[in-house]
Amino acid sequence: MIEVRNLSLTLPEFALDDVSLSIDTGEFFALLGPTGSGKTLLLEAIAGLKDIHRGKIIINGKDVTKLKPEQRNISIVYQDYALFPNMTVKDNINYGLRFKKNVRGAGSRFDLLVEMLGISRLLNRYPHNLSGGEQQRVALARALIVEPDILLLDEPFSALDANTKETVQKEIKKIHSALKTTTLMVTHNFSEVFSLAGKVAIIHRGIIQQVGSIEEVFKTPNSKFTARFVGMKNIFPLKQMNGKFNFKDLLEQNKHHHNGGSQYYVGLRAEDIVVGNERLETDYQLKGIITAVSNNGIYSEVKVHTDSADFTAYLTPNRYFELELAENKPVFLGFNKKDINLIRE
């Protein structure tokens, strides 16, 4: 188990504030945050590459906070892979074994990794002759051959094209289920973690906003920021909406949330909003007028202006054509009670 306790560090251009995380052995944990939210910094701090001002890092019960990077047994794979340009692929992969003599069965582990990642024909090449996906695989093999206690992945897919990304994602998943290496991945893309991670944490401006299972964070974001980040398109102040609808029972249910005087918001996913030409059978509904439509082939996005707020809804292309939607067309818009999220500021 890896525990990060109350970690703080300040750099001229950035700070991490009181970050605490706990990752179970063998777990695939994703840290999500927009670009510039301090994710890479946190990884480097865990690996011992950046000095921290306060806090503790504990790996399997052992406090490693004061240990040098080479004493921690933590491997890191950077966004740009950072392969050693002066070494062949084979030498890159085996580099760590020069220093970690106690890795058991290094030879067979080498064969296993090379085979799983499909890089056997690249072994004598130099990094500058490899594609992005190939470099990524070599970097993974190099990081995993030393049997690290944790594998840190820094935006592993951001530099890959869509097809390669999918393949590498599958490979990482396969390798993780085979080796069960505890993994902490950082990314700014929520969709990247869906198939991979068990647990996620959302970080914003150096502060952890929410930690939980993917489902939990996706379905019940606890702040406006997280809600936006996980793709909640419709977020309105509760007061504004309560004037129009009677949200009394909703408020009753969430009574324990609703004190302290902080501002509350109502959040609705675009895919949970129903649009129709006639009255709908949803818990709440209202009339509006379409202000914009766009269609990307997989889903259609419809923006609807109503008296209470401007909504965004996702429809299947089929439904979209069925309803003959167009700009300036009046429509009915509805949603159900179960899909409403009450969000704190």
Partner: peptide, 9 residues
């Protein structure tokens, strides 16, 4: 950084 995390001083 990678080199050090792989065990090199």
């Amino acid at each position: 950084n990678v080199s050090r995390s792989l065990g090199a001083t």
